[in-house]
Design a protein around this nucleic acid. Structure first.
Lengths: 252, 252
DNA sequence: CAGTGGTCTAGACCACAAC
DNA sequence: TTGTGGTCTAGACCACTGG
């Protein structure tokens, strides 16, 4: 037996990158519950020191976990463990407030701005009205357990809902439509895809510009088939799980 | 008026990061059509030189565009302009082959592996059978215009589809069920959320491990309400746009 | 003001793809 | 063999958060 240590054959295989070790270590600490939901992770500098490497490698590990949806980042504030996803079912009549509460989480809604303007080309097309027709343009921010998770931009046909802006807009708009205008939402059309958050949206959500998100565009229809409102939602990418059940149809 | 030049007030505002310029420049070249779909971008080194900066900054710009879905990356092969998203409607009876073709794109399916095994706990639960019951486990890879965009893992109740593995599995499984077993898919249950691709999935899709993706889990049901198969799909994040129309129900 | 992430410099070596 | 992205070193300064 030679004194010189034999190289382990395994070491001739492609070595797992350094950042993978950091990722795995953190992932394990999350899985075992050592780091619980919303807990703050060690700083990038601490991590790089304790793993005897540089901030770049630590950062890569954190970014990988972020992409997976295991952790999230508050801009210049640090890294935190992601809470479980909230399940959203477009077919359910439950409002945001209702389905979040039903899952044991605490929803909040905050009005950012609300005004009446003339319909843009985009809004007119989606609301089935003419450019320049009066629409309400409403921006809101929604929270789950105190974390801002979504900003939304709602456009409503103003002529269908006179004086709507007098109503408190940090409550359910669906309920307001029902209670004050006898308008019931019976059908929803949605388009959605992963994208990234603009600088403005990111600011509202306390994250860095360019953070990945989930874009959802919803058109709501009332019992007469009329479009009531169009809602663009910009979610953080780790917050939602979409769940839906569909009956097959020949329709496109 | 002092001789000393006044600072332009604008310059006291936070300066846009360097990588934003590179991002914007590339985004503009994509928008104007100078760089068309699937075109290869300049290499990271070329970009960093032409913008008189380092690879890190160039890379950040490219990663930002990747998150937006404007460009994609083939592992160690370079960066390319993303083609438009394909619209997928879960309610439509169209198969992958059909809806991709209908949008002027060319779909391909490749069988990776197919075997009969005993149901895992996960498979048993989702198929409504017992652990160890015979199931087909099928892995496939799907392409659009030659680009690998999704890997899927299908589990079927083997007892419902005797000798299914004898059928060519690079064609539509839905059609095979209909043609040979008189089983029609009438209902689908889906769960989906953004996530990241595992090393194995990434290899199949020619991308780097940890690339962000879109996870879709589908349970298909036949005309009798029986579960026919469960399908886990791992899409690249920039490929799909989900489009759906739902009638509201009191059901959860 | 101290601490955090955000951005950047100026390099380096590696694994792999394509020729 | 050459060129690409993938990973990494060892620093630096900046913008902003929070006490």
């Amino acid at each position: 037996m030679s004194i010189k240590m034999q190289l382990d054959p395994v070491s001739t295989l492609p070595r797992a990158p350094q950042y993978v070790h950091i990722r795995d270590s953190l992932a394990a600490r999350i899985e075992t519950g050592e780091l619980i939901a919303s807990a703050k992770l060690p700083s990038e500098r601490e991590l790089s020191e304790s793993f005897n490497t540089t901030r770049v490698a630590a950062r890569e590990a954190l970014l990988a976990l972020e992409t997976e949806g295991l952790i999230y980042r508050l801009d210049r504030r640090g890294w935190f463990v992601s809470p479980p996803r909230v399940v959203y079912n477009p077919r359910s009549t439950k409002s945001f407030m209702q389905y979040v509460t039903a899952q044991g989480r605490i929803p909040t809604t905050e009005l950012i701005s609300a005004e009446q303007i003339g319909a843009s080309e985009w809004a007119a097309k989606h609301l089935g009205i003419n450019v320049g027709d009066p629409v309400y343009s409403i921006w809101r921010r929604r929270f789950i357990d105190g974390r801002p998770v979504m900003v939304e931009h709602i456009r409503m046909n103003a002529e269908s809902f006179p004086d709507f802006l007098e109503i408190p807009l940090n409550n359910s708009i669906t309920e307001a439509m029902s209670k004050f205008y006898s308008v019931e939402l019976t059908r929803v059309k949605m388009n959605l895809y992963p994208s990234s958050l603009s600088a403005s949206q990111a600011r509202h959500l306390l994250v860095s510009p360019g953070t990945s998100g989930l874009y959802i565009c919803r058109s709501n229809h009332d019992q007469h088939g009329k479009i009531t409102d169009v809602d663009q939602e910009y979610w953080l990418h780790d917050v939602l799980e979409i769940s839906l059940e569909a009956h097959k149809e020949q329709s496109e």
